[in-house]
């Protein structure tokens, strides 16, 4: 006996028109439409997620991104601030995001 009325549980019909085509850049798992690399995105997301008014400390960034070197974090931070996604606050080691959502 099988009930035909119940839809299979595995079908996630979560379609997001227009958003799905962007992500397929080689092996880089997720690269949203904003044109940032995965590393730059991670840095940006961490800065975004920081609730403190003075923003996220570079030290915290470093502690949360073990897999990245200080140089590559700096590079990402440089890039992001050049693009205007983040800006430094109380000193050059604190960053906040401009991307209000």
């Amino acid at each position: 006996t099988k009930s035909a009325s119940q839809p299979p549980a595995g079908t996630a019909s979560f379609s997001n028109p227009g958003m799905n085509e962007v992500g397929n850049f080689g092996g880089n798992s997720f690269m949203p439409a904003n044109g940032l690399t995965a590393a730059q995105n991670q840095v940006l997301n961490l800065i975004k997620a920081c609730p403190r008014p003075e923003g996220l400390n570079f030290h915290d960034l470093k502690n949360q991104l073990h897999h990245m070197t200080v140089a590559s974090i700096k590079q990402a931070v440089d890039f992001l601030s050049n693009e205007g996604h983040i800006y430094s606050t109380v000193d050059d080691d604190h960053f906040k995001s401009t991307d209000a959502e």
Partner: peptide, 20 residues
């Protein structure tokens, strides 16, 4: 504080310039 606001304004300008 002024510095922060200036940085923020500058960053927003850069962002806006890119999004044009």
């Amino acid at each position: 504080l002024v510095r922060i606001q200036k940085n923020k304004a500058a960053a927003l300008l850069r962002l806006a310039a890119r999004n044009v």
